[in-house]
Design a protein around this nucleic acid. Structure first.
Length: 150
DNA sequence: CGTCTTTGACCAGCGC
DNA sequence: GCGCTGGTCAAAGACG
């Protein structure tokens, strides 16, 4: 989880105060009781005959942001986009382009709050951040958009 | 020229 | 067994 620190740092910068820390972010979704919004929709895991519960570690982030593309420092490649029934906004599927790093992430916007963006991470990064200070400027621009909107 | 986005099709799991 | 739904693939285009 230490690899998430990079993202967390960024998120702290982005969402200092906006970050919704209601009932624990980055919680492992095993029993989708309250997280029906996520677990109920994404709970369809494939387990062929294996009685073992192969629960993939998933981490859901709820962030208030105008932009759904929160650059956490990794390179993401979009590989799909689907519309969900509960949400009128489509959900975007991203994947880390690093070799051997099969970290997936999906971004979904809530119908209730247009400014609410749910980012669900799946897997952990096993490589350093590719980004440098160059792209940090981009993050800064996002922050500015953020501040402006407020 | 290389990389990434877009978009429809395809596939697998689940409910009925 | 069939149809629906969520998740992924892959070809083509856009963009620097």
């Amino acid at each position: 989880m230490e690899n998430f620190q990079g993202f967390l740092t960024t998120s702290s910068l982005l969402g200092n105060g906006e970050f919704q820390s209601g009932k624990g972010l980055m919680e492992e979704m095993e029993d989708g009781a309250e997280n029906k919004t996520f677990a109920g929709l994404l709970g369809a895991q494939k387990k062929k005959g294996d009685h073992k519960k192969i629960r993939k570690p998933r981490y859901a982030f709820q962030t208030r942001s105008k932009v759904d593309i929160l650059d956490d420092g990794y390179r993401w490649r979009k590989y799909g986009q689907k519309a969900v029934k509960n949400n009128k906004f489509p959900r975007s599927y991203y994947r880390c382009t690093h070799q051997g790093c099969n970290v997936k992430k999906q971004i979904q916007r809530l119908t209730k709050d247009e400014g609410m963006v749910v980012t669900t991470y799946e897997g952990m990064h096993s490589h350093p951040i590719q980004n440098s200070n160059d792209n940090f400027e981009h993050i800064l621009s996002q922050m500015q958009i953020y501040t402006t909107s407020f």
